[in-house]
Design a protein around this nucleic acid. Structure first.
Lengths: 337, 337
DNA sequence: TTGAAAGCGCTAACAG
DNA sequence: CTGTTAGCGCTTTCAA
């Protein structure tokens, strides 16, 4: 391994001068600078990052906590965050929590061991009291997650509004029996959505029925099970609000296999505006989140926190959503009228 | 920040002894060990990883190069690799190359700067001559990528066989005009697939038509364009081999919008056996790769390489595929006969 | 404008 | 079984 010492020797200068050149410090004469650059080039020298981290107390690495990479919502978020990080010369470590408190805690140690400069949490499995102490070691930023007590920056959409608008859309189509189907993963997120859902029903003087609520569904295959339950109900819902597009797709695929027409027999609304919404037949009505903006904001807030050294301050960055109406909630017959 | 020194002082011992306890060295008396553990506990001590990396010349981090996180094939690979790494107490840095030579090279510097212990490449944009020199700095393992000249371990499926079997399946359904549609991303991978495709045609005494070959399609939206081209052909193909399920889904969705029946008007075969194959209507026939086994193998080979220090040796780990026949290639009418 | 020297936190000879 | 000491590769005072 070639070190700064080797470069210095070859250039006939001191380590200090070489270091100055590497870090673009002023007060290095053009002549010496050239000498150093040539020596670096000749030796193919690259500074050792462990040594720099140790000395500078900064790693250039950020950890991103996500439940699962395969969930398209989260992989999209990773994609966006990676690009944003890359621009700032930061690396991203992916940490899959699998919704496990233990795994989440284990990964939080990356902050303690100073292996990363900061942590971005896109979901939170432990309570805030458990997480809070880690703030002593570095910044934590929540993206797509909300926690009232948390004293950190939070970047998210108004889930209450999203739940409300999506439900209102179903009501506007004439539905009165609307099921609710949302994953457990996003504790506060799901809670806010459900509040919005209920408020919309309430405003329309419709009752909220507990038997229409499915709160443990969060991937495609769960959609299948949800549909089976619905299928055998006496009083079937005519519409369903879901927490993700995969879920919606799963329900639609299953319903079609049983000969149901979507949206005539069951209107389905998704969430996240993933690619799949346009591939399904019918195409899925959904809620679009400005993920790119959110991801970029998250990263810039993180950069700021890393430099400010003031980690424990609540900060809210709220984004707004769009309802994207497609075929899974509006009968094609009606459209053509 | 609490250091090993603080722990030593509190325990009334030397740094060495504390270090021995941390690293589970033998020859530490039970009494002192307990003392150290108590002190560590009391101070909430965790060893600084930059210092350890510098001292031990190992980081506990592996870089994974992928073209894009959003591509479900690659995000699945990341998911599997992350889990495997996590078991070995390794962290994963995601590097999106976006098929860019420059980005790929930039990320390869992670090896030079010793920021990672090894690199897993799931696609390769630069030629092997360019990559080779980086082997001086650490191990590189190819997963899902193949390069004849490369002197490193390679974990992949027999793409030739996959191309052959998939095409043969279409021929067996009576098709004689079969289009070929595959992404550019996997240079050698795509080449091998195409060879298999051509061999199957040849064995059936069918001609390979250049106008039926689309080699720049690699995501869902490209499927749309491919279909449009097909739609306006004089002599339309009756079947199409695609390089990914998203592509297949894109083509199917578009074809259906134009009133085509799948597979009656156009049989479509996908690749990768992603979730979407079961959600589409019709469900997509596809090629299943044993990704989990491949991912685990990749990681264990990487671990071995990291320890062996002998990086430049070719090693082939080939896996086998399964053809999964669903509705997009076999007419439902025929099935019910 | 340049260099000598201290030290980031840790581990491993080596000596006892 | 335990401690002293050197040094991993780098940056940054401080002094010249």
């Amino acid at each position: 391994m070639t070190t700064i010492e080797d470069v210095a020797r070859l250039a006939g200068l001191s380590r200090t001068t070489v270091s100055r050149v590497i870090n673009n410090h002023p007060y290095v004469s053009k002549t010496k600078k050239k000498l150093v650059l040539e020596a670096m080039e000749e030796l193919g020298y690259v500074p050792n990052s462990a040594a720099r981290s140790l000395r500078n107390q900064r790693t250039g690495v950020i950890a991103v906590f996500i439940p699962r990479v395969m969930n398209p919502f989260f992989s999209q978020l990773i994609e966006i965050l990676e690009m944003a990080a890359s621009e700032k010369e930061y690396q991203l470590i992916v940490c899959q929590t699998l919704y496990s408190k233990t795994k989440e805690l284990a990964y939080l140690n990356l902050l303690k061991t100073r292996q990363v400069d900061g942590v971005i949490m896109t979901s939170m499995s432990n309570s805030w009291e458990i997480i809070q102490p880690f703030l002593d070691y570095g910044p934590i930023v929540l993206c797509n997650e909300y926690e009232d007590q948390a004293t950190v920056p939070m970047i998210y959409i108004d889930q209450y509004e999203a739940g409300y608008l999506a439900t209102k859309h179903l009501i506007d189509q004439g539905h009165e029996k609307i099921a609710y189907c949302c994953g457990r993963y996003a504790s506060n997120v799901a809670a806010a959505r459900e509040k919005g859902f209920k408020k919309a029903l309430q405003d329309a003087r419709l009752p909220f029925l507990e038997e229409y609520a499915f709160r443990t569904a969060f991937q495609c295959s769960d959609g299948k099970q949800v549909f089976e339950k619905i299928q055998y109900m006496e009083e079937k819902p005519t519409a369903i609000f879901t927490g993700s597009d995969e879920l919606a797709a799963g329900i639609i695929a299953e319903a079609k296999k049983s000969g149901w027409s979507i949206p005539e027999d069951l209107a389905v609304i998704g969430f996240d505006n993933q690619k799949i919404t346009e591939l399904m037949d019918p195409m899925i009505t959904t809620v679009h989140q400005p993920l790119e903006e959110m991801g970029n904001k998250t990263l810039s807030v993180m950069m700021e926190k890393i430099h400010s050294k003031n980690y424990a301050r609540k900060e809210i960055h709220q984004f707004y959503i769009d309802l994207i109406v497609r075929e899974s909630t509006v009968s094609r017959n009606l459209i053509s009228l």
